[in-house]
Design a binder for these strands. Structure first.
Lengths: 222, 222
DNA sequence: GTCTATACCGAGATAGAC
DNA sequence: GTCTATCTCGGTATAGAC
């Protein structure tokens, strides 16, 4: 049994513990996780059977349990891999020390930028979050969410204090709307489509900061 | 067997056929649908068992099948009830003959306005759409989605033609982002919270049309 | 590391009495 | 309109041979 179990850690998400144990065994495991992620994204976590995952991997369902001790463990790895990467990127953006508007733009770009490499994980998170959060082992999802929220809200407030952003909007509410707009895009975003992630990001940044209306501001309430 | 089956119709969604057949039998059925909707929203469609629905209704699972011929039929009724109402409201807004910006604002208000009365249905649609769309019987979901998209995109294009909206944004993409922002709000929206649906709508309309930035436009690309 | 075989359970649904 | 009883299926997971 090569199975790695979920456990606490000092970072925001618990997974990828023992990831240092590389080699071909680890690559095999990673391959299975990626494969499963695609099926989870396509059919939903609960509708995906371990038999299905095994079949697509060219083995039988019993053999999957040599690598993972449960279906939950697989999806756990899918989600935590994504969150680890996302949070690391956000931290880097925050450490640039740029002004709030610049940092916020960069965070928007980071978000849309994950659509391609983490499409499956984001889809699973969007569709199955509500179900998975019921289980203790996925408590870290909420923790990671809180940490990310703090990063965004802090920047929005800083931008308001610096006079870059209008002060008649609610920081937390604004963050939620930005967040939702980015991640939900995974539902219709298709790699190779009319717009790439970078194009989506610039489009959204334009509307977010300057608005859809032409000409003068209709309500400069600030 | 009082069960009503799904069938085609001239409107966008098929359900609520025979809804005229009112009386206490129909009320009982409606009550069961509303009850089921809440559980679907809380636990997800697949994770909800017919036993659970029956228990919360104070009956046994076998008795449920006197009212519905399958679990799918129940969720079908949940979703089509919502879509029928939504599309009817949109149509009314379009028929007002107002300018695009006014109509679009009204459509945003309509969207947020459904959060409270249709919270459960919207939650189910957000979380289980991907799963349900696999089945033929839910093809009408996609049809309804297309009809709604047409309504929005037409208004956005009209606004651009009239000079109300900037022309350097993509109408379809802009629609998707607006749509996503509205519906995903059910994930965190709680009736009785800090902001009511009307407040959310006005907040969003402000940012959507005028942007988050203060002062002059940074990029008036149009 | 994969296979065969199977245990075990809980799901949706049905039949017929009341 | 509800209950009792039960069928059937397909899911996750396990044990041990190879």
């Amino acid at each position: 049994m090569t199975t790695r179990k979920s456990s606490g850690s000092t970072t925001a998400t618990p997974a990828k513990r023992q990831r240092a144990t590389s080699g071909s065994a680890s690559e095999r495991r990673d391959h299975l996780v990626k494969l499963a992620a695609e099926i989870f994204a396509r059919k939903g976590f609960q509708a995906t059977t371990v038999r299905e995952i095994a079949t697509e991997a060219g083995i039988l369902s019993g053999s999957l349990y040599h690598h993972f001790d449960s279906k939950e463990t697989i999806v756990d790895e899918v989600l935590s891999t994504f969150l680890d990467d996302l949070i690391a990127r956000y931290r880097a953006a925050l450490e640039s020390g740029s002004d709030p508007r610049t940092v916020l733009s960069e965070m928007v770009r980071i978000g849309f930028g994950t659509l391609e490499p983490h499409r499956a994980a984001i889809t699973v998170m969007q569709n199955d979050w509500n179900y998975l959060r019921q289980f203790e082992r996925f408590n870290y999802l909420v923790k990671a969410e809180d940490e990310v929220e703090q990063m965004w809200v802090t920047q929005i407030k800083a931008g308001q204090a610096a006079g870059q952003f209008r002060t008649d909007v609610d920081p937390k509410l604004t963050y939620r709307m930005i967040r939702d707009t980015i991640w939900v895009a995974v539902r219709w975003f298709r790699p190779g489509g009319r717009l790439n992630p970078a194009g989506l990001a610039e489009h959204y940044i334009t509307v977010l900061f300057d608005g859809l209306a032409t000409g003068e501001r209709t309500s400069q309430r600030a």
